[in-house]
Every structure is written in structure tokens, then in C-alpha cells.
């Protein structure tokens, strides 16, 4: 294939995904703008934001990749059922997502201590991360599986769905639940 033709075919293939991700990104940006206003109450909060967002991709991208391979290999059925493989994959992502959320809170507190910057209490960071981690994983695991199953039934290759679904849902729900958790912990603490 001629190099120029190849260039535009890659471009056309990848652009829709990136534009969908852009919409999700802009929405979560508006939510982040709200989070910035809570920073005075929880100094150091912003340190956790990029890590929290990046983790969504790492955890649920892996889950999506596994489910997608499982469907291709005929190891799992495209429906919500008490299937041992499906349950194991879901439990593993939940444990990874919630576990890493707590690690992020601890790492953030340590980084702020080392830098000598002002910081909210460790318990507040852990509460915010734990709450947003649990809420995000329930919605993301459910939403990701539902969209992959529906897409697969309609003849889409799940490999092409996982990336954009994870990026967009992760950005949107990750930020919304982060803001919600900040507001809840603000009221309780």
C-alpha cells in the first residue's frame, strides 16, 4: 500500500475513538474545575487526580482485554451469568481497583510529606479514594461488561470497543465519583 493511503487509513480508523475520548475528557475537565475549588479544604488533593484517572485505564483496560479475549476464544458467554471465569475476572478487577486506590492515598501522603508541602490527613485521603474507588469500579465494571456484551452480540469486535469505552467511562465516572466523595468526606470530617 502507498504510504499516503496507509497514513489516511490509520487516521480514519483511530480518529473516532480519540474524539469520543475527547468528549469524555472535556466533561471530566468541567468536573475537575469543581474539584480544584475543594483543594483549600483538602490540601494535596490534586496530587491524586492524575494517578486516579490513569489507574482506571490500567485496571479496566486489562479487564476489558481479558473479557474480549475470552469471548473470542469462546471461554465466556456474552451475558451476565454466575460463570466462574467471569466472576474471577470481575473480583480481580474490583480488588485491584479498590486496593490501588488505597495505595494512591498512602503514596500521595508520603510524597507530600517528603516535599514538605501542606497536606490533609491520611484518613481523609484514604476515605476519599476508598469511596470513589468502590463507586467507580461498580459502575465501570457493570457498564464495561454491558457495553462489550451488547456490542459483541451486534457483531462489533470487542477489541476495538474496550479502549474508547474504558477511556470515556473512566474519565466521566471517575471524576464525578471523585468530586462526590470529596463532598461526602467534607460533610463527615
Amino acid at each position: 500500500m502507498d504510504a499516503r493511503t496507509e497514513l489516511w487509513s490509520i487516521y480514519r480508523e483511530a480518529l473516532p475513538v480519540l474524539l469520543v475520548a475527547l468528549c469524555g475528557g472535556l466533561f471530566s475537565g468541567v468536573v475537575l474545575e469543581e474539584v480544584v475549588e475543594s483543594v483549600a479544604r483538602f490540601p494535596g488533593l490534586l496530587v491524586m487526580v492524575p494517578v486516579f484517572l490513569a489507574t482506571r485505564g490500567n485496571v479496566y483496560g486489562a479487564l476489558g482485554g481479558r473479557i474480549s479475549s475470552g469471548l473470542h476464544q469462546g471461554l465466556i458467554e456474552p451475558r451476565f451469568a454466575w460463570d466462574e471465569r467471569l466472576v474471577n475476572a470481575v473480583v480481580a478487577s474490583f480488588v485491584n481497583a479498590v486496593g490501588i486506590s488505597v495505595v494512591i492515598a498512602v503514596l500521595t501522603r508520603i510524597a507530600l510529606f517528603v516535599l514538605g508541602w501542606e497536606s490533609a490527613a491520611l484518613a481523609e485521603f484514604v476515605a476519599i479514594m476508598l469511596l470513589s474507588g468502590v463507586l467507580t469500579s461498580v459502575v465501570l465494571i457493570g457498564g464495561l461488561l454491558a457495553l462489550i456484551f451488547v456490542g459483541y452480540e451486534r457483531g462489533y469486535d470487542p477489541d476495538n470497543l474496550v479502549g474508547p469505552i474504558v477511556t470515556t467511562l473512566g474519565d466521566v465516572f471517575g471524576m464525578v465519583f471523585l468530586l462526590l466523595s470529596v463532598l461526602i468526606v467534607e460533610v463527615i470530617a
Partner: peptide, 21 residues
């Protein structure tokens, strides 16, 4: 959009967590 695939062959929750965490 990162997709770690280290434990992709496995369907055991403990193994997936141990490999990925």
C-alpha cells in the same frame, strides 16, 4: 489507555491480582 496483558491467560482472581498489582 493502557492495557496490561501479563495475566491474560489466567482466569483465577488471586493469580490476576498477584500478577497485576
Amino acid at each position: 489507555m493502557a492495557v496490561p496483558k501479563g495475566a491474560l491467560g489466567s482466569w483465577d482472581a488471586r493469580h490476576i491480582v498477584r500478577t497485576m498489582f
